[in-house]
Design a protein around this nucleic acid. Structure first.
Lengths: 174, 174
DNA sequence: ATAAACCTTCCCACGATTGGAAGGTCAAGG
DNA sequence: CCTTGACCTTCCAATCGTGGGAAGGTTTAT
């Protein structure tokens, strides 16, 4: 089965299949004489596994762990569960972050007339001066319970588990 | 005020200040004789505006719209409100997506023994065959109400509003 | 004078994915 | 047999927001 069929059968695009191969998430499959990748049903099965994991928001690193556990007949379900629960915690953290932003903002929007006059609590909050000692309208800005997290966000979270992007692996040998 | 002080005063890193300038989100500020950027209080005020918008999850494009409205004395608050509510909808959509993944996964994890035996509903669901006609364990896989969204996700969402990344603007003239 | 702490520009990396160019291959129809 | 279109191959670039770092110049404090 060529890559197009494998992509269709698995729900993973041909582009991504090649990418996953290049970073070592999936092994290199055999090739036809013309150099076309040739996928077995087992390969497609693995790709479907990957698609489902991806649809659940797992990172490539986590998918690598899950794939390894899948292959491991002697795995402990505790290991799978741990990965899943860590991911759940992360998903919930991110969801909470988004909802806090959403709540703050819809609260502000609720207080905005939304007419053709310029006065707007949303703009007012965005343009607040910082060191305001006392004159701060507390109802608007940070009512969602986020206190000191303002300056730190978006750091890389999942450490690499062993697969590194050797995109250029085939450069000198081919 | 040099860029380091402006960064400290605004909560936007020096790196990001230069980036925002390079993409045209903020104007180029004046320079000292040595070429150092020199920020006024007004500039810092704008940077704080940006930091707050960013903390609310606005994209650079949306921040550009908000900055324009901020500067526009004759703005209609309806315009601000519209941007805010569109963003709220987007935030809620993303939060919902994350929560659906989280729920599916924690449901699965709840059914996982989490011991040293290999049997695990999480792995089972991930490795399910697709065209399974009847033998599908419905409790595990897709209980969160997501039906046909599996194959389409992560498309670019916010269209550019006029600021394009002309990072190399200063290349030939300087 | 010298060293530390800044600043400048430029390039690269992340993660996951898509798009496209340039070129080779395969299958179908004429 | 030849053409055409649909596929495949590799390689490069872009996305988005941010951080890291190199190479070199400047300011500031000792």
């Amino acid at each position: 089965m060529n890559i197009g069929k494998a992509a269709e059968a698995s729900g993973v695009s041909a582009k991504m299949i090649r990418y996953y191969e290049s970073i070592g998430l999936i092994p290199e499959v055999s090739r036809t004489e013309a150099g076309y990748r040739d996928y077995s049903d087992k390969d497609v099965h693995r790709l479907r596994f990957i698609r489902r994991a991806r649809d659940l928001g797992f990172s490539v690193d986590q998918m690598a762990e899950l794939l390894a556990l899948w292959q491991d007949r002697g795995r402990a379900s505790a290991d799978v569960k741990r990965i899943a629960l860590e991911h759940v915690a992360e998903l919930e953290r991110k969801a909470r972050e988004l909802m806090e932003m959403s709540q703050t903002l819809s609260h502000l929007a609720g207080n905005c007339h939304g007419d053709d006059r310029p006065d707007c609590p949303i703009i007012n909050v965005l343009s607040e001066q910082d060191g305001s000692a006392g004159a701060k309208s507390d109802a608007a800005g940070h009512c969602a319970g986020e206190s000191d997290k303002s300056h730190e966000h978006a750091q890389p979270r999942f450490g690499k588990t062993g697969i590194e992007p050797d995109r250029k692996r085939r450069q000198g040998s081919d």
